[in-house]
Nucleic acid binder design. Structure first.
Length: 365
DNA sequence: CTAGGGTTAG
């Protein structure tokens, strides 16, 4: 059973495709000017990974030590394989561990998007006599939602009552998010109103954030901003996630001026921008070929000790590649490696597209 | 230990 699951997970790694983009030539000199501000900004090696994965995800990749040795020494999980091994081992332990460490493993696997694995593992747990708790059920609902199986997700609600639990805000937020993932924003809103009426649990800032995201996904920035304004009047004040969601949505529509307005609004309210805010803005101005503004933003973030991470760098790599400047893209990748930021498959995909584009251009000559 | 935000491509 577990062997089959392993094979499925191993096979599910994404396949690579190569695409060709269309091109327009622009002022390359100024685009190139984005590089120095990054080169000179290295005040310290930044800890780009927060501790949300710390329990299982150490930065073991940098070590030359074999993974198994490490795992046995520290009891930490570094990848899917380790998670599954630990899960097996825990199921065989007597007495059985509590549901808590199992939840931890399921959480990590869900973060790695192995949703169906999480669901089958949960079934195994139940068979082995481990009682799910509120956390487990929320994890399962979330997995069903991400698998586009909302109906199954909703049916887990039945288990709550069977087990004597009451759904909480997190449960509701998860379901609302599930509807939104399927673009069923109306049903999400209905559920939201039901929560309000029932009085069992109050919507919180995450609830609002989920709705804002749904409105943005529908392309309704105006409604998202209206909701933001309403929040400003109510008890549940908008936070950085809400602002970032809308700022990103505006940037995707290249409404950078509006995005910058929200940006100053949030800072004036004492909400400090973070690396996500700046990544969205940089992305927005890159789309507009405004290299000068991109450089300004990069300088500004670094001056605030907010350092570009893999997302930010990927935006830059992709931008350079789309401009046909593969050499510059490569030097960004070099920069990433120097800073201990591992380039991702997305980085390399952009590079590959960049090289394909070069090939096309050379052929055209 | 559970929920919302930023990167590529088709």
């Amino acid at each position: 059973m577990l062997m089959m699951m392993r094979a499925t997970i191993a096979a599910s790694s994404s396949s690579l495709k190569v695409g060709y983009g269309s091109r327009s030539s622009t002022s390359r000199l100024r685009l190139r000017g984005m590089l120095p501000c990054l080169l000179h900004s290295s005040s310290a090696v930044v800890v780009f990974f927060d501790n949300y994965l710390a329990l299982f995800h150490s930065r073991a990749s940098k070590s030359t030590e074999p993974r198994n040795t490490q795992q046995h020494q520290r009891g930490k999980i570094t990848d899917v394989e380790d998670a599954l091994n630990m899960f097996d081992e825990m199921l065989q332990r007597r007495p059985l561990p509590s549901v808590f460490p199992f939840n931890q493993i399921l959480t990590e696997l869900a973060k790695m998007k192995h949703y169906s694995a999480v669901i089958s593992m949960n079934n195994q747990m139940v068979v082995s006599g481990i009682r799910p708790d509120v956390y487990t059920l929320a994890i399962i609902i979330n997995c069903f939602c991400h698998l586009n199986q909302m109906e199954f997700g909703l049916s887990v609600l039945g288990n709550f009552f069977k087990l004597g639990f009451e759904p909480n805000v997190t449960t509701c937020n998860t379901l609302i998010n599930g509807f939104i993932l399927q673009n069923r924003v109306a049903e999400a809103a209905t559920l939201f109103n039901k929560i309000l009426d029932s009085g069992n649990c109050k919507p919180n800032v995450v609830t609002f954030g989920t709705l804002v995201k749904g409105l943005c996904a529908k392309g309704n920035n105006t409604a998202a901003i209206q909701l933001l304004k309403k929040m400003g009047e109510g008890a549940c004040k908008p936070n950085i996630v809400i602002y970032n969601t809308i700022i990103d949505s505006l940037c995707k529509d290249t409404l950078v001026a509006d995005a910058l307005n929200l940006f100053s609004e949030m800072t004036s309210k004492g909400i400090a921008p973070d690396v996500m805010t700046y990544t969205s803005l940089v992305h927005g101005v890159c789309k507009l070929h405004d290299w000068k503004e991109a450089t300004r933003l990069l300088n500004e973030m670094v001056s605030k000790h907010i350092f570009p991470n893999v997302y930010t760098f990927n935006v830059l790599v992709d931008t350079f590649c789309k401009e046909g400047m593969v050499q510059e893209a490569r030097s960004v990748v070099e920069m990433m490696i120097q800073r201990d930021i591992e380039p991702s498959t997305i980085t390399y995909r952009s590079l590959m597209d960049g090289y394909c584009l070069r090939g096309e251009m050379d052929k055209a000559k």
